[in-house]
């Protein structure tokens, strides 16, 4: 009703049509994410060539070859099974980093904003310090220090993957922590929280019942974006030569393929495409959640 009264726009902003149906991209992104998750979990049980076996009779064959559907690398590794195997590692690393880092960040951020005072000052400072180092540089530094078992010998692959996940987790903590802190600040001053406090509800219950449900969507939105950035950082680390060794992830497939780019460009295109599509899908979901959130906010 009053919306007609407060029309403040002009012909300066013409043609606004309300779009209702769920966009096509939603299904596309959903399909891709589902496919990647499926391959990550069941990929090794699917029929197909071994990912770590070199086929000496078909080095560097182009995609759509009869026995290598996506071609092989110049070293004879099958691209399709490489990608399927890589999905497992890339997705696993990203999910662990974002879920663990997000959980830690959320706890710290919510506590910091809810209890305020000195804790908040210290935690905000800590977040700022961590965010002051570009995330790629931070994970580079962490890995370069932690991924060695003694002075000059790199640690085992398992340990390096662990270190990789650890460093990405550490990168995620302040990013999601700051979001959680901001959202909590906004919600903890709302009337229903004050009302609940005045009824003598414990802080823990208030956080669980009133704060977390409202903070969660914001975390979820940024969390999706974070999965995208973690995949990118993992790929970047691989290109810099300190990611997962031995072509086990999309990033390291791409890094290995860089040298052969003039002969078998699909070694670069395919993992790059897989990374890009996954990142696009994650960003898309993040954006979708954020938009839905904005709409809900504007209705309140």
């Amino acid at each position: 009703m009053s919306s007609t009264e407060q029309i403040a726009t002009t012909d300066i902003a013409p043609v606004q049509k309300a779009r209702k149906k769920r966009p096509f991209g939603f299904y596309l992104a959903g399909f891709w994410v589902a496919l990647i998750l499926f391959l990550a979990v069941f990929g090794d049980f699917l029929p197909g060539p071994q990912w770590d076996e070199s086929f000496y009779d078909s080095l560097g064959v182009a995609p759509f070859h009869q026995s290598h559907i996506l071609g092989t690398t110049l070293d004879g590794y099958d691209m399709y099974s490489g990608l399927v195997h890589g999905a497992r590692l890339s997705v696993f690393v990203a999910l662990v980093a974002v879920i663990v880092g997000g959980a830690i960040g959320t706890v710290i951020g919510v506590a910091s904003a809810y209890f305020r005072g000195k804790i908040d000052v210290v935690i905000t400072m800590a977040f700022n310090i961590m965010l002051s180092i570009p995330n790629l540089v931070l994970s580079l530094a962490l890995i370069s220090v932690l991924a060695y078992s003694d002075e000059n010998n790199p640690a085992s692959t398992t340990r390096r993957v662990g270190v990789l996940m650890l460093s990405l987790t550490i990168v995620i903590i302040p990013i999601l922590g700051r979001i959680a802190r901001g959202a909590t600040l906004q919600w903890s001053s709302r009337e229903f929280v004050l009302a609940s406090k005045s009824m003598g509800t414990t802080n823990f219950t208030i956080i669980r019942k009133h704060i977390l449900p409202n903070v969660a969507p914001a975390i979820l939105a940024i969390g999706f974006l974070a999965i995208g950035s973690v995949i990118i950082v993992e790929g970047s680390l691989a290109v810099l030569g300190i990611g997962v060794p031995g072509g086990g992830s999309w990033g390291s497939m791409l890094a290995n393929g860089r040298g052969n780019i003039a002969f078998s460009p699909w070694e670069v295109y395919l993992p790059a495409g897989a990374i890009a599509l996954t990142v696009i899908s994650c960003n898309w979901f993040g954006d979708y959640v954020r938009k839905a959130l904005d709409q809900r906010e504007s209705k309140i």
């Binding site: 995208g228 990118i232 790929g235 970047s236 290109v239 791409l254 860089r258 780019i261 003039a262 460009p265 670069v268 295109y269 790059a272 990374i275 890009a276 990142v279 696009i280 960003n283 898309w284 954006d287």
Partner: peptide, 22 residues
């Protein structure tokens, strides 16, 4: 732009150099 922002710099860099340089 949404698609472009999701393409990591290493991928776009490598692909650009493949197309325009190589």
């Amino acid at each position: 732009l949404f698609t472009a922002v999701s393409i990591p710099a290493f991928a776009s860099g490598i692909i650009l150099s493949l197309i325009f340089a190589v």
